[in-house]
Simulated assay, not measured.
Amino acid sequence: MADKLKFALALILIAAGVAGFYLLSEQVLVLRVLVVLAGVIAGASIAWFTEPGRRFAVFLRETVVETKKVVWPTRKETVQMTGIVFAFVVAMAVFLWVTDKSLEWVLYDIVLGWK
C-alpha cells in the first residue's frame, strides 16, 4: 500500500510540474522548463524508492550488462550493410515503378483504349 501511495505522489509531482509549465505561461521559458524538470526529478526520485522502482533499477543494470556483451559492427561493416540496403531500396523502387507503368499501359492503352 505504501508503494502505491509513493507512486501516486510521484505521478502528482510530475503532473504538477507539467501544470506549472502552463500556469507560468507569462514567465521566461527557462523557468517553465526548470519547473517541469523539477517535477519530473522529484517524481522520479520518489518512484525510485518503490518496489517497482527498485525492479526498474535492477532492469537498467542488467540492460547495461547485456549491452556490453553485444558485438558491435565495425565502421566498414556498417557502411557495407548500409550500401546493400540502399541498393535494395533503389532496385525495389525501380521494380515497382516498372510494374506500375506496365500495368498502367496494359489497363489504359490496351484494355480501355485510352491514349
Rank of each mutant, 00 (worst) to 15 (best):
I41M: 12
R55H: 05
S45N: 10
A19T: 12
T82F: 15
E26H: 14
W97P: 00
T67G: 13
L107F: 09
V94F: 11
L96M: 05
K68M: 14
L60A: 10
T67C: 14
A2C: 01
G83P: 02
Q27V: 14
V28K: 15
L112N: 03
F95E: 03
V111L: 14
L96K: 00
G113Y: 09
G53Y: 00
V28W: 13
T67K: 09
L103R: 04
V89N: 07
G113I: 08
I14S: 15
V70P: 00
E104K: 12
T50V: 04
K101D: 03
P52C: 05
I46Q: 00
K115N: 13
G113F: 07
T50G: 03
L24P: 00
L11G: 15
E104S: 05
E62W: 08
D109K: 10
T50N: 06
A15L: 09
T50S: 04
V40Q: 05
L13Q: 04
E77Y: 02
G17A: 09
F59Q: 06
A16S: 08
A93N: 08
V98C: 05
R55Y: 04
T78L: 08
W48K: 14
P73L: 15
I84Q: 13
I110E: 07
L34K: 01
V30P: 00
K76M: 13
T74K: 09
G43T: 04
S102I: 07
F95L: 12
T63Y: 10
M1K: 07
L37W: 03
K76V: 13
R54E: 15
V35W: 02
T82C: 10
W72P: 00
A2M: 04
D3S: 04
I12T: 12
V18H: 02
L24V: 08
D109Y: 11
G113Q: 07
A16H: 04
T74S: 13
W72L: 10
F86Y: 11
V18K: 02
R61G: 02
M1A: 11
K76W: 13
L112S: 00
F49N: 07
S25W: 07
T82H: 07
K4W: 13
Q80V: 13
L96Q: 06
F7N: 01
T99D: 02
V70F: 14
F88K: 11
K4V: 03
I84V: 15
G113L: 11
A57E: 14
A87H: 08
E77P: 00
L23W: 10
R61V: 14
M92Y: 06
D3M: 02
L112R: 05
V40D: 05
L112P: 00
Y108F: 12
A16R: 00
L96P: 00
A93Y: 01
M1V: 06
V70C: 01
E77D: 05
V71H: 11
R55G: 02
G83T: 10
E62K: 15
T74G: 10
